[in-house]
């Protein structure tokens, strides 16, 4: 069912929703971009509909809502481990089609691969999606190539046109919030074409490891890890134990996002590192996104949001790398 509302009407609904849900959405952080006097768009708790950034692609993906950057697993006292308190308020996330697909990939790893992850599941099961309309394909997007441009997996769909909001309700429980809205046919229109295309080679196999195409990345990549931190599907983490400075007998174990591009990702105690070369790390990442995840789970990991391309300070393009691989496989280069 669809409705249209003006901003004021929706504000009231939003107030009601906030009683039940913590709402996360892309938000503009003024002057918080990497460079002076530039802005940042990332996910944060939203208190007002006007705080939602509808027009720009968020620099970071929504994954941080369900996979916090730093997450305390438990606290230690002298001989006890104690789990942190858990807030059981439900969560609404405003996000785009590609990002909904990205969460499915995280689910695959965190809920299915080797059993259920307790901390992920607790957060994930509270989450409902609010699909945001993509009015246009953003720079570097290639969702159509990755078949993530469309989704049916959402509870609400919202698009904003000036001061009017159009809402589609797919899940009944939300109908009660919208009784004052004007009934209207509302459904998302999805992106059908991107400027960027990524031609994922079908006959890829590990013989491509030996291709010289990885070599250039050894000198171009600076191993900063931005491609991983902005990615909606990268879910690797590292465990950290710390003790509190003022009481060394207490501390906590936490997990923190990890990047397969950053030094130390494969370093074992004693110092042996398996992928020192940045070209090898690039290969590891690219193959994971468009080859081996698919081999294991039956669909590609990459969702084509293009954030890695947006973020790379060295202008390394993931989609271009995929296209180069395709040419190698076809024998064109």
């Amino acid at each position: 069912m669809g409705f249209s509302l003006n901003l004021t009407e929706f504000k009231n609904i939003f107030e009601e929703l906030k009683k039940e849900y913590t709402v996360y959405a892309p938000k503009l952080f003024k002057n918080k971009g990497t460079y002076s006097d530039t802005n940042m768009v990332r996910y944060d708790e939203i208190h007002d509909i006007e705080d939602i950034e509808f027009d720009q692609k968020s620099h970071y993906s929504p994954k941080e809502v369900i996979l916090p950057i730093t997450q305390t697993l438990f606290y230690f006292t002298e001989d006890e481990v104690i789990e942190p308190k858990f807030n059981d308020k439900k969560i609404l996330i405003f996000l785009r089609s590609c990002d909904i697909h990205a969460v499915k990939r995280l689910d695959e790893i965190y809920l299915k691969n080797g059993g259920e992850d307790y901390y992920y599941r607790r957060l994930r099961e509270k989450v409902k999606f609010v699909l945001m309309q993509c009015e246009k394909s953003f720079e570097n997007c290639f969702c159509v190539s990755m078949n993530t441009n469309e989704t049916k997996d959402y509870s609400l769909f919202i698009k904003r046109k000036g001061d009017i909001l159009f809402i589609e309700v797919k899940e009944e429980e939300f109908l009660s919030y919208l009784h004052n809205g004007k009934s209207e046919e509302v459904s998302p229109s999805f992106i059908e074409k991107n400027e960027v295309t990524a031609n994922v080679p079908k006959d890829l196999d590990i013989s491509i490891f030996k291709s010289p195409i990885w070599e250039e990345y050894a000198s171009r990549c600076i191993a900063c890890g931005r491609c991983n931190t902005v990615c909606g599907t990268c879910g690797c983490f590292t465990m950290q134990d710390i003790f509190y400075k003022d009481n060394v007998n207490t501390g906590e174990r936490r997990r923190v996002w990890a990047s397969c591009q950053v030094d130390g990702f494969t370093t074992m105690a004693g110092g042996h590192e398996f992928r020192k070369d940045k070209g090898d790390r690039m290969r590891f990442k690219v193959m994971h996104k468009i080859y081996d995840f698919n081999k294991r789970f039956g669909y590609h990991m990459c969702v084509g949001c293009g954030r890695c391309d947006d973020a790379c300070p060295e202008y390394i393009s993931f989609s271009n790398c995929v296209n180069k691989l395709n040419k190698v496989v076809k024998g064109e280069i």
Binding site: I109, N113, G114, G235, R255, A258, T266, F274, H288
Partner: peptide, 24 residues
């Protein structure tokens, strides 16, 4: 095989080689 492992249960990603999780 010996690899860096943080979780041991197929989540943390450190031990993955191709589509294989050494820990699993």
């Amino acid at each position: 095989y010996e690899r860096k492992m943080c979780c041991g249960i197929g989540k943390c990603g450190h031990c993955k080689i191709n589509d294989t999780y050494i820990c699993l």
